[in-house]
Nucleic acid binder design. Sequence first.
DNA 1: TATTTACAGACCGCCGGTCGGTTTGCAAGG
DNA 2: CCTTGCAAACCGACCGGCGGTCTGTAAATA
Lengths: 241, 241
Amino acid sequence: MKSTTRKNMPPEERRAQLLGCAQMLFFSKGFEDTTIQDVLDMASVSKGGFYHHFKSKDELLFGVLDGMAEGVTWQMAVVASDEMSSALDLLHSFTHLRANYLREHDYPGQVEFFRVMNQDKNIVLLEHFKRRVRTGAMPVLIRIIQKGCDEGTFTVADVDTAAELILFLSNFIDLALLRAIEVRGSDTADHAAEKLQAAIDMQFLTLDRILGLPDGTTNFGWPEAVEATMETVPATPPSAN
Amino acid sequence: MKSTTRKNMPPEERRAQLLGCAQMLFFSKGFEDTTIQDVLDMASVSKGGFYHHFKSKDELLFGVLDGMAEGVTWQMAVVASDEMSSALDLLHSFTHLRANYLREHDYPGQVEFFRVMNQDKNIVLLEHFKRRVRTGAMPVLIRIIQKGCDEGTFTVADVDTAAELILFLSNFIDLALLRAIEVRGSDTADHAAEKLQAAIDMQFLTLDRILGLPDGTTNFGWPEAVEATMETVPATPPSAN
DNA sequence: TATTTACAGACCGCCGGTCGGTTTGCAAGG
DNA sequence: CCTTGCAAACCGACCGGCGGTCTGTAAATA
């Protein structure tokens, strides 16, 4: 007696499908508010089927995070493998990559993604993701800084610590960016945009000074990025954050 | 018919007691893993009693966070009210306060507290706490920096952004501090302690450079802090993190 | 005594996770 | 080609425990 229509799939495919559904749901509803049943419904799989591939809800989360981090770290490895460019050029590529990894690969609507990830209910998701990116980026950035020191371009006391500080610092603009996004279209949008620009400038200025570079060396011209961010979507409905 | 021994208390007292129990449990077991029932058992109160004072588990969390942040921000207000001292002295007091608020007020075993707060399961707790402290500290730090600029001691492009950056930066050593704590007593402890010192030095150096001060101005001598941290407890049993 | 406040504890709906059973793909033996 | 065997994939009823509600009761207050 067959109970319902059933569709067997090779393990990898099922796993990928479940991860895809979970990712969407996590981004839209948050991790805590997403039920296993939600995932099951979207993927048309039973509970038994799910727990055949994942042994817990947390493992599902980590799977999603791994998938996201994989793309980023892979691109970073590419950057690091370039032996010809100067350390400063590599740093340029690196920061550009970190800022645009969402747009480049797979994820449409990076602004919305960023907004959702920064909601209160997604703190766990976001923090774990940041950690993955940091650990993935560390060896790459260390190589770049080391190279810069060898060239005589950079001057730092401790390469590892400097790399860690720079990666830590790279999340600074998130605060201003988030505020700017949330007030898009309102009358405080201009002020927020100015503050965002100030945050970006200051972050790069600090980067210069950490590496012992002359002021303004690493500000690779991002003024258009602010406008692009602010103009993507006409207005943002107030979210229950 | 009296069912069990019962003890009425004035609302404030009950609330404080429940908050106290919740705080202990949150710190030891984490927020998610702490059951309402756990709190009830520790406080010897029924569910009805609890929900008479708090309308949700989240409100309990926020209550705990408010209690912790209150002490910190209050001390900060004291620092800010000092009109006589120079901006640099105020900054000194400020950083000292931020580093030692746990030891000064109420919380014994600050190292253990820090360790627990940084466990994976306490991400939500920690992140909310950081946010409270940041928002509480912002106005104070803004005043200090503004004063420094007026004095001609500091040089920053945007006071607000600089304050935000410095507060953001003040969490940088947490990474190194956590690692140093977790390997206390093992054979990698010395290396971690060195890295911790490097992180502290670099953080203060960056602070100098953000404010346009000569290198070494703000490194108010913390070498003993590292040793104190490492020697507090003989060894740390591996935690299920 | 009347009314409000502080509390008690049974109860509900839901969620993450388990478990015994069923279906499917597939390879080996006849 | 058709069995037969078997493990991998899947199903769905079920469980314990959680956050939260509700009706009722004891204590404080006046």
